[in-house]
Design a protein around this nucleic acid. Structure first.
Ligand SMILES: NC(=O)c1ccc[n+]([C@@H]2O[C@H](COP(=O)([O-])OP(=O)(O)OC[C@H]3O[C@@H](n4cnc5c(N)ncnc54)[C@H](O)[C@@H]3O)[C@@H](O)[C@H]2O)c1
Ligand SMILES: NC(=O)c1ccc[n+]([C@@H]2O[C@H](COP(=O)([O-])OP(=O)(O)OC[C@H]3O[C@@H](n4cnc5c(N)ncnc54)[C@H](O)[C@@H]3O)[C@@H](O)[C@H]2O)c1
Lengths: 217, 217
DNA sequence: GCTAGCTTGTGAATCAATTCACAAGCCCTG
DNA sequence: CAGGGCTTGTGAATTGATTCACAAGCTAGC
């Protein structure tokens, strides 16, 4: 039994929570890889990840059978399998739309490149910003967006624009053929079904905290 | 039936997903408030929020009975109730720990202050940063953290420090008595049970996107 | 003040995720 | 090469979240 017993196409819809946990497991595995550790048990992954060993095994079992009974999982093999499952075996081209404060912070962030995300360009509508650079990344005119996308085929668009233009820009991104969006505007976006959209809403996270503080007994 | 029928203390543990949706509903209600709209139905909130009317009513029913049969919900009353439930009826003092790129972007962000989050200080360990300011917010030495907290009693700490020091700093924040943390380091943190911790992990969100792109059929 | 037309609030039913529990399999020791 | 000690993989059971479906209640119109 090894990773090749995994079905080519997952049989049923995979829960988002499962994918999130795979991401977490991969992080620990990479830590272990760095230390040259050979194997790890579901129990140890669970303790670190704040879940249960049964959960770890169930999560993995959706994609195949990766462990050895009595021994656990081979750290490098499982890491490789998870990277493959998560689509991290390749580079992904990212464009940032909105060269403002948070767009700039993201453009400068090296953690993305380390995981295979290459920021190919930033876009803005502000003439004062267009033509400049963001940590070496050119800020382009939003007017050239469609033709650039046709030529360069970026995989992911990061939206760091004001809330009120987010839906409009998302529609434009969708029409241009980009199928994945990471959105930082605090807006509830509606996207075509064949598109993956994740929203990072910091105000909402803070409200989760104030709710907890207010309702703590 | 109005908001005062709501139980003083919720009867059972509230699902995180419920709280997230309340946040979303509140956003739409504030939009409606701005336009002077008087009432809204669960069905309309649902359509905007990408859920179902039954879900909206269930979410609200956990906290009480806010609507009028045949009419819907009073926009200002429901907004007030939700703000109260989410703990947004007051100001919250926030400290930013780690005056780096993302800490700076957050310090500059006005969306927080608009919702009642007041950033009282930033902290760093880098002598070159200490004593400077971040958009008018003083960058203080981490050494004075404990005594400052005792004096100023901030409610929430935002962690924008490198991954490898995140757990250590979280422990320090916990010992200082702060009960809520918004963490931007891509680390799985372990906190005391009486503490609320939310982690915004952008790499994980991106991996959710690459998973979707890779496994799209 | 009665009726028609909506919309809420909520048990019951369904659907989804997590946990339990254990047979099956692997390694190591003697 | 047999037995003990672990740990996986997975059906079954449980727990949790969402959806269904409808009685109850409110408003407006007449
Ligand atoms: N700064 C933060 O820390 C922070 C935190 C949470 C959320 N956000 C959200 O992120 C978004 C951006 O915030 P920011 O602080 O970077 O704002 P910002 O004003 O600094 O940047 C926005 C940029 O988008 C550009 N822009 C506007 N409309 C555009 C369009 N249609 N196409 C392309 N570019 C366009 C503007 O010219 C500007 O450069 C906002 O929705 C904000 O609510 C920011
Ligand atoms: N920049 C981004 O867009 C981005 C995106 C996603 C995640 N993150 C995460 O956010 C965190 C910060 O990223 P950044 O890009 O702002 O890094 P940065 O290096 O610009 O800033 C980190 C700051 O923290 C300070 N610091 C280090 N140890 C400290 C300690 N023990 N106590 C107090 N301050 C300390 C450093 O002096 C520095 O000023 C990292 O964990 C990173 O992975 C950043």
């Amino acid at each position: 039994m090894n990773q090749f017993t995994s079905p080519a196409q997952p049989l049923k819809r995979i829960a988002e929570s499962t994918v999130r946990r795979l991401s977490i497991y991969l992080r620990f595995l990479e830590e272990f890889e760095g230390r040259g550790r050979a194997t790890v048990s579901s129990d140890e992954l669970a303790r670190r990840g704040g879940t249960t060993s049964a959960q770890v095994r169930k999560d993995l079992s959706v994609f195949g059978s990766f462990g050895k009974r009595g021994l656990g999982y081979s750290v490098p093999e499982l890491a490789t399998s998870l990277r493959e499952i998560l689509g991290l075996g390749r580079e992904w081209k990212v464009v940032i739309i909105g060269a403002g404060k948070i767009g700039a912070a993201l453009a400068q962030y090296h953690g993305f490149r380390e995981r295979g995300f290459v920021i190919v360009a930033a876009y803005d509508t502000n003439p004062e910003k267009i033509g400049g650079t963001l940590e070496g990344i050119a800020i382009r005119d939003m007017q050239s967006f469609e033709s650039d996308v046709t030529r360069e085929n970026p995989d992911i668009a990061v939206l760091t624009i004001p809330m009120h233009s987010a839906q409009e820009v998302l529609d434009r991104v969708a029409r241009a053929g980009i199928k994945a969006v990471l959105n930082f505007a605090p807006a509830q976006l509606h996207a075509p079904m064949d598109m993956a959209v994740k929203t990072v809403n910091m105000a909402m996270e803070l409200e989760g905290l104030t709710f907890a503080l207010t309702n703590a007994h």
